[in-house]
Nucleic acid binder design. Sequence first.
RNA 1: GCCGGGUUGGCGGAAUGGUAGACGCGGCGCACUCAAAAUGCGCUGUCCGUGAGGGCGUGCGGGUUCGAGUCCCGCACCCGGCACCA
Length: 981
Amino acid sequence: MSEAPYRYTAAVADEIERRWQQRWDEEGTFFADNPVGSLRATTDSLAQAATASSEPAEKMYIMDMFPYPSGSGLHVGHPLGYIATDVVARHQRMMGKNVLYTMGYDAFGLPAEQYAVQTGTHPRTTTESNVANMRRQLHRLGLSHDSRRSLATTDPEFMKWTQWIFLRIFDSWYDPEATNADGITGRARPIAELRAELRAGTVDPFALADRQSITLPETWVGRSVADVTAASDAEISRLADSFRLTYISETPVNWCPGLGTVLANEEVTTEGRSERGNFPVFTRRLRQWNMRITAYADRLIDDLDRVDWPESIRSMQRNWIGRSDGAQITFPAAGLAGNPEASFDVFTTRADTLFGATFCVLSPEHSLLEDPSALPAQWPEGTKDAWTGGAATPRAAVEAYRVRAASLGEDERTAEDREKTGVFTGLIATNPMDGREVPVFTADYVLTGYGTGAIMAVPAEDERDFAFADRFELPIIRTVKPADDFEGGAWTGDGEKINSANADLDLNGLDKDEAKARATQYAEDRGFGRARTTFRLRDWLFSRQRYWGEPFPIVYDPAHPEVPIPLPESMLPVDLPEVADFSPKTFDPMDADTEPQTPLSRADDWVEVELDLGEGPKTYLRETNTMPQWAGSSWYHLRYIDPTEDDVLVRAENEEYWLGAREDGGVGGVDLYVGGVEHAVLHLLYARFWHKVLFDRGDVSSQEPFHRLFNQGYIQAYAYTDSRGVYVPAEEVVAEADGTYSYQGEPVTQEYGKMGKSLKNAVAPDDMYEEFGADTLRVYEMSMGPLDVSRPWETRAVVGSQRFLQRLWRLAVDEETGDMVVSDAPADLATQQATHRAIDGVSRDMSQMHFNTAIAKLIELVNHLTKVGTAPREAVEPLVLMVAPLAPHLAEELWSRLGHDDSISRAPYPVADPELVKADMVTCVVQVKGKVRHRIEVDPEISEADLEARVMAEERVQEVLEGQTIRKVIVRAPKIVNIVV
RNA sequence: GCCGGGUUGGCGGAAUGGUAGACGCGGCGCACUCAAAAUGCGCUGUCCGUGAGGGCGUGCGGGUUCGAGUCCCGCACCCGGCACCA
C-alpha cells in the first residue's frame, strides 16, 4: 500500500465522495426549476438557461416508489432502484433535460405505532429520527435528489392536502353519462350539481343507483323520479349523499376483539385468527368509510392501454379489476311467505345456456334468506332427502346452513378440493325462458360479493354446477353440443346450440356468441333481463382504527350523528391529538359483538370541538377513524412538483409542465416510475383512481399519474440454516469441495431468497462504503445484470467494479505522485475508434437503461486505453463523461483534475462521430451448410459480388469444398457467406 | 385451472434470425518481487487431437429457414399473480 499512495482506494473514494456531496449540497446542483412559483428558476440556473436558448429545457420527471422509513437500517438490496433512477436522472441532465428527481417518505404506518405502544415514544419522534437516518444513508450514495422537494406523508403541510383530496372526492359523484373535455365518457362531478339535477329531474337516481350498485336510503326505495322533483331540499340532499365517491357503509370486515382492531385479510391466518397475538377473528359488518373506486373500473381498465407499463403489471390490474360482460336475468321465486311476487336476479356470462338452467343457487348471505322464517314451513313435494341437510323444514335447514357458513373462514370456504355443500330453500323459481319450475338452493360456492350473489345453475356447461348437480341428483340439460371425444361432465367449450328453443325464440344451431346476443335481447324485450357488466373489484375500505394515520376532515352534529359534515379548507389540516395511549381498546377475545373503540375516540378534548360551520358556533364530534397508509402514496407525485405551495395542491402551470399530456399520445404522468412489483395492484390502482378524480374535477391536466412504469428486480441472497433450522451468519459459511456448505465445521443447508437481518444474510451499504466506496457499490449494482431481473448478491464480486474504477483512475492519475498523466497529444486512430464505438454503444444502452452492458463497454474502453500506455485526453474526457452518471463522485473529481471548473453534472454527454464508429475491416464468416469453416477480414463496404469472389478464391475454402457440388451461395455482405452444398 | 415471465459455462450475465458465451467473478499460467500482496500480460464451454483442426453444445421433442439461444407447434421444470368470480 505504501508503494502507491495515490491509488483509488476505499479511503480515497470516501474523501472524494464526501467532498463532492458537500459541494453539490452547497451549490444546489440538482435543483430543478418550476415554470412558476417559489421553485421557479434560481439565479444560477437562470444564468445557465440564458446561455443556452430561450426555449425552456425539455423536462423529465423521474420517481422512485418512496420507502417506509423503517428503523432497522438499509441493506444493499434496498437502493437498487434508487441507484438506477439516479443514473437515469444524471444521464438525462447531461442530455440537457430539466430533471425533477427527489425522494419522500411514506411515514404513517404500523411499526412506529406499535413501537409507541410498547415504549410510549410518540410515533412522530420515532418517524422523524428514522427519516433523518434514512436520508443520511441515501445521501451517502450520492443520489442527485432535489432536497427542496423531499417530503414525508406525516408532514402537517402534506397531510393538509391529503385531507383536501379526501374532501374533493367526498364532494364528488360519478356521472357515467358526462363527457370530459377530451372525450372520455364518465366523469366525477360536484355533488351540488347532482342536487340541482335531481331537483330538475334531469337525472334518474334509481337507474344510476342500480348501475353503480348503490343502496339508496330506505325512504327512497321503490319511488319515482316524480317523487324526487317534488321532494324537500333536505330529502334531495340526503338522496344525493348516497352517490358520493366517499361514503360510509356497513361493510363486512375482519374484527378482532382481542386486539381491538379491524384487520386486513393478509393479517388473518388460515385458521381465522390474528397473525399477531393469535386471537379469534370474526367477520362482522361494521360502519366503515369507503371510496367508490368501482365507479372508475372501466376507465382503470381501458386506460391501461394508454400507459407504458410492463405487460405483466397491466395484466395483473386487469385481472384484479376483473371485468366480465354478461347478462342479469330475473327469476320469479314462489314460496316466500307474504311475498307472492318475490324474485331474484342472477348474473351470467352465458345467457345462451338459459335453457339449460335446471336449478338456482343463492349465496347464504342473500337478502331473500335473511329471514329464514319466511321460507316454507314444509318441504315441497319432490324434495329429495339429500337436499334437506337432515332438517325437518326448509326454515331449519337454511338457518343451520347460514350459521355454518358464517363460521367458516374465507380460506376454508374457498378451499380448492372441498366438496360442494348446500341445502334446498324450499323456494321454487321459474325459468323465464320456458316456464320450467326449478328448485332454489343455497350453497356457499356462490359468493355474496360477486355479481348478484345468486346464480342460475347450468350443470351441463359449468363444472361447479355439474359437481353440485351430481351430488344432489339434479337434472342436466345440454344446450351446447360437445365434441365427439367428450367423456362426460361439464362441457365448457364451444359448440352448436341444442335443446334451446321456445315458442318465440330458437337458438338451436347457433354458435355461442350469436346465441348469447339473441338470448340477452330476448330477455330485454320480455323485461326479465338485460346486458350487464360486473367487476371483481370491490370498493376501497378506507378507514382504520389506528392512531398513526391521517385524521378525517369530518365532523358530526350530535343531533344527526349519521350525517358526516366536511370541514372547510380553512380548517385544514386536522392534526392528530396528543394521547396517552396509542393502542385501541381491546376486549374479551371471544366477544364478537363488541365495537371498535379507536385510539382517537378516547381523546375527548379533541373529539368534541366547537366550530362555526355556517350555523354559528356549535359543538361537533370529530370522526375518530384514520386513513389507511395508502392515502399519502396515492398522490405524493403531485406534491413533489409544488412542495411549498400552501394555498393550492399544485399550481396548474407546474403540473402541466411536469405531468402534461405527451406528444407521443401518452395521457401524461411521471416519465419514469421505478419500484418493486409488490405494488403492482393496490398502490398503483389507488393512485390512478385518485388522479382520475382530480382530473375530472379539473385539479390536474394529466389523466394518469405514471406514464412509464419500470419494475426493478430484487437483490437476493443465500441464507444458511444449521441442523436445528436456525439461521447462521451467511458471511462465515464455507463452501466445501463436495458442493456442500458448513459453518464452524458443522454442515448447514443453503436456501435462496430475500436479504434480511433475521436471515443473517444482510449486507449493509455502510460496510460496502468502508471497503470499496459508494461509487464502486453503485457500479457493482448496475453491472450485475438487467435491472428488471432479480439476482444474487455476491460480495466477493464487488471487487471487479472497484478494479474497473481503479484502472480508470490510473489512466489519469499517477499513483506514485498524484499528478495527472493524461496526454494532450492526438490519439491514434484505433483509440479514436475505440472511444467513439464506446460512445455509440454506451449512449444506446443508457437510453434503454441497459446499464450492465453500458458498463461492459466502458470497461472495454478502459482496458484498451490501459494497453495503449499514456491515455490521450480526447479519449479520457468522453470516458469520464460517460462514467459520470454511474460513478458521479469519481467522475467529478477526474473532471475537475482535467481542468474543468464546472460540475460534470450538466456537462453535455459525448456524441459519437459516425465516421469513427465505422470499422475499417470486419470479420466475414464463411459457413458451409451453416457451419463456420473460415473467417476473412474484409472492407465493410465490400459488394456482395466481390465478397463472394474473395471467399471462393480462399485456399481454405477450396479445401473444405473439395469434391462437393455447390448448390447455392448466400451472401450477406459484409458479415457472412453461407455456401450450401 | 387461468394469466404473465423465465430456463445460455463453475457463478452473475452478453448476443437487430447471421462468428453462442461480450463484460465481470472465480480458476490456471507467465512477468515483476527474496517472497507475498498489488499490478500487468495470456489462457479458461466441453470432448478428441502434439498441432492444424474436428465432434458436441443455449431445459426436452418436433418444425420453418441457406442459417434458430432468437420465429412457430408440443412438453417438462422454475418464479410471480389470480382463482368455486357464475
